[in-house]
C-alpha cells in the first residue's frame, strides 16, 4: 500500500494547535464535524482549503491540517471565490460566524449564493459577537437585552439565513446543530459533494455570552428537513420553520459558475492587434 492510498481519519485533518474557544463552545464539535467529513470523503489534505474571516469560529483554519486562509472580517467568501475560480482542482470550504457572514459580509453572502461557485460555506450561528465580548448580531432576537451596546435590545428583526440563501440562489441549503456532530458531518460531506454553492447553518451555542443556548439541545428537532428540489417547495417549508429544524432543506441543480481556463491564443497574437 502506498502512502497515497492510506486511509485518512478525522485526526489526520486536525492540527496540533489548541483552539482559543471557551470550554463548552459549540465550535469544538463543528471542527470535529469538518475533519470527520473530510475523512469520510477521503480527500487529500493538500487538496483542501479552509478559508475564513474574523471571529471565534473563523479561527478554524489553523486548527485543521489542510491549506488555510484566515483573512479579514467579512470577506471569506470573496477570498474563497478567488481561490476556487483560480484553482478549480481544490476543494474549498468556508467557515465563519453569523456576524462575519451576515453583517459585515452580508453582501458577499448574497452574491456567493447567486454566483454559485462550487464551495461549501459553514456558518456557526450563535446569535452573538463572541470575540468582542457579547454584542447583538443580525440573528439576535430584537429583545435580547444582555449587551452593553444595546441594553434595550437590538430592536431589529432577526435575519433568517436559510430564507436569504434560498432566495439568493444557493444550490444546497441545510441546517445542523453542534450538539449532533455526526449530523453536521453528514451535512458538510453532502454539501461538499453537491455541485455549486452549498450553505450550511450550524446552530453552535455560545456558552459564555448566551448561556441560555445550552437549552437548544432540548428544542432542536433532528433531521426534520428533507431535501426539496424546487425553490417553491423549500420556501413553503421555511414559512413554517422556527429555526430549530435540522437537515437538508434544498438541493438544486443549477450548474456551478466556473469560467473556462483553456488557452486558445498566444500573447504574441494579442500584441499584434496593437500594431498600427
Amino acid at each position: 500500500m502506498t502512502a497515497q492510498a492510506q486511509t485518512l481519519t478525522a485526526k489526520d485533518f486536525k492540527s496540533d494547535i489548541k483552539p482559543v474557544w471557551c470550554p463548552g463552545c459549540g465550535d469544538f464539535s463543528v471542527l470535529s464535524a469538518v475533519t470527520k467529513a473530510l475523512a469520510e470523503l477521503q480527500l487529500r489534505p493538500e487538496k483542501v482549503a479552509v478559508v475564513s474571516g474574523i471571529g471565534c469560529s473563523s479561527r478554524i483554519p489553523a486548527y485543521t491540517n489542510v491549506y488555510g486562509f484566515h483573512g479579514v472580517h467579512g470577506r471569506a467568501l470573496a477570498t474563497a471565490t478567488g481561490l476556487k475560480l483560480a484553482r478549480p482542482d481544490m476543494t474549498v470550504v468556508v467557515t465563519g460566524g453569523d456576524g462575519d457572514g451576515f453583517s459585515i459580509g452580508g453582501n458577499h453572502f448574497l452574491h456567493a449564493c447567486r454566483r454559485n461557485v462550487d464551495m461549501t460555506y459553514i456558518v456557526m450561528d450563535n446569535e452573538v459577537y463572541g470575540m468582542t465580548k457579547g454584542q447583538a448580531s443580525p440573528t439576535t432576537d430584537p429583545d435580547w437585552c444582555n449587551s452593553k451596546l444595546t441594553p434595550e435590545g437590538p430592536g431589529v428583526t432577526k435575519l433568517r439565513p436559510l430564507n436569504l440563501a434560498l432566495a439568493a440562489g444557493a444550490n444546497f441549503v441545510g441546517r445542523g446543530f453542534s450538539g449532533d456532530p455526526n449530523e453536521v458531518a453528514r451535512l458538510i460531506a453532502e454539501g461538499i459533494q453537491h455541485p455549486g454553492f452549498s450553505f450550511i447553518q450550524v446552530l453552535s451555542p455560545c456558552v459564555t455570552f448566551r448561556s441560555e443556548q445550552r437549552g437548544w439541545k432540548d428544542i432542536v428537532r433532528k433531521d426534520t428537513l428533507k431535501p426539496r428540489h424546487t425553490m417553491a417547495e423549500a420556501m413553503q417549508v421555511l414559512a413554517e420553520d422556527d429555526g430549530f429544524n435540522t437537515g437538508i432543506l434544498f438541493a438544486g441543480d443549477r450548474p456551478p459558475f466556473q469560467p473556462g481556463q483553456k488557452a486558445v491564443t498566444e500573447l504574441a497574437a494579442i500584441e499584434r492587434r496593437f500594431a498600427s
Partner: peptide
Amino acid sequence: EDELASINMCLGASFG
C-alpha cells in the same frame, strides 16, 4: 460585487 470582494478574490487566487 464590490471592491471589497475584488481585492479579496485576488488574494484568494494568489494564495492559490
